[in-house]
Amino acid sequence: MTKAPESVALDQLDKEQMKTFSDFLMSYNKLSEMCFTDCVRDFTSRDVQEKEEKCSLNCMEKYLKMNQRISQRFQEFQMITNENAMAMAKKTGQL
């Protein structure tokens, strides 16, 4: 028995959402582990030291800014690539 097109589309959407959420969790876990490893040094107390808290906040902020900048540069690169492809298609008469 075949599925209705709507059902197939919903299944595909669910898979994409699960992949996006999985990617988010992987990134979050990587960030958490990296900042924890870099910033937490004292395990003799249950309290988070002010120095550790500042370090982890700075770590997170740097990581997020870096990630945002990479995404921005990737978008710029994609726009240039698309513009070049369009120009080439016009030049060769394929458009």
Rank of each mutant, 00 (worst) to 15 (best):
84 N>H: 08
94 Q>V: 02
45 S>V: 11
45 S>I: 13
23 D>P: 03
71 S>W: 00
18 M>F: 09
39 C>M: 02
74 F>G: 00
39 C>S: 00
81 T>M: 12
7 S>G: 00
88 M>E: 10
56 S>W: 03
66 M>S: 14
29 N>Q: 12
16 E>F: 01
36 F>L: 06
81 T>I: 03
59 C>K: 02
35 C>T: 02
90 K>N: 11
28 Y>Q: 09
19 K>E: 13
31 L>T: 05
85 A>F: 04
70 I>E: 14
28 Y>D: 06
4 A>P: 07
83 E>M: 10
78 Q>W: 02
93 G>V: 09
5 P>C: 09
14 D>C: 02
90 K>S: 11
39 C>R: 04
69 R>E: 15
86 M>G: 01
85 A>Q: 10
89 A>F: 01
23 D>C: 03
77 F>K: 05
59 C>D: 05
12 Q>L: 15
35 C>G: 04
84 N>W: 06
52 E>C: 02
69 R>A: 15
1 M>R: 08
6 E>G: 11
87 A>W: 07
17 Q>G: 03
41 R>W: 00
65 K>E: 14
55 C>I: 04
83 E>W: 05
66 M>V: 11
25 L>G: 04
31 L>C: 05
37 T>M: 08
2 T>V: 14
73 R>L: 15
83 E>H: 06
10 L>D: 13
31 L>E: 02
8 V>N: 04
69 R>D: 15
57 L>E: 06
67 N>T: 14
30 K>F: 01
7 S>L: 13
5 P>M: 12
44 T>V: 13
18 M>T: 12
12 Q>W: 07
32 S>F: 09
15 K>V: 11
50 E>P: 05
37 T>E: 06
47 D>H: 06
66 M>C: 00
44 T>F: 00
20 T>I: 10
51 K>W: 02
44 T>M: 12
31 L>Y: 01
94 Q>M: 13
82 N>V: 00
49 Q>S: 15
21 F>R: 01
57 L>N: 07
21 F>S: 05
1 M>I: 12
16 E>T: 03
89 A>W: 02
15 K>C: 09
66 M>I: 10
86 M>E: 13
82 N>C: 02
15 K>Q: 15
68 Q>W: 10
15 K>T: 12
95 L>M: 12
47 D>N: 08
89 A>Q: 06
83 E>R: 10
92 T>M: 10
86 M>F: 07
40 V>T: 05
67 N>L: 10
90 K>A: 09
28 Y>N: 05
91 K>E: 15
53 E>A: 13
78 Q>C: 03
83 E>A: 11
59 C>P: 06
59 C>L: 04
36 F>M: 04
79 M>C: 02
29 N>D: 07
60 M>F: 05
17 Q>E: 12
42 D>H: 08
93 G>L: 01
41 R>L: 10
87 A>I: 08
53 E>F: 08
30 K>Q: 11
75 Q>C: 02
9 A>N: 07
74 F>L: 14
32 S>C: 01
19 K>H: 07
54 K>C: 04
47 D>Y: 04
90 K>Y: 07
10 L>R: 11
63 Y>T: 04
91 K>T: 09
51 K>Y: 08
69 R>Q: 15
67 N>R: 15
52 E>G: 04
13 L>A: 13
32 S>V: 08
18 M>N: 11
18 M>I: 12
3 K>F: 14
68 Q>D: 15
75 Q>E: 12
26 M>E: 12
14 D>F: 00
55 C>T: 06
43 F>L: 13
71 S>F: 06
88 M>V: 08
76 E>V: 01
42 D>Q: 07
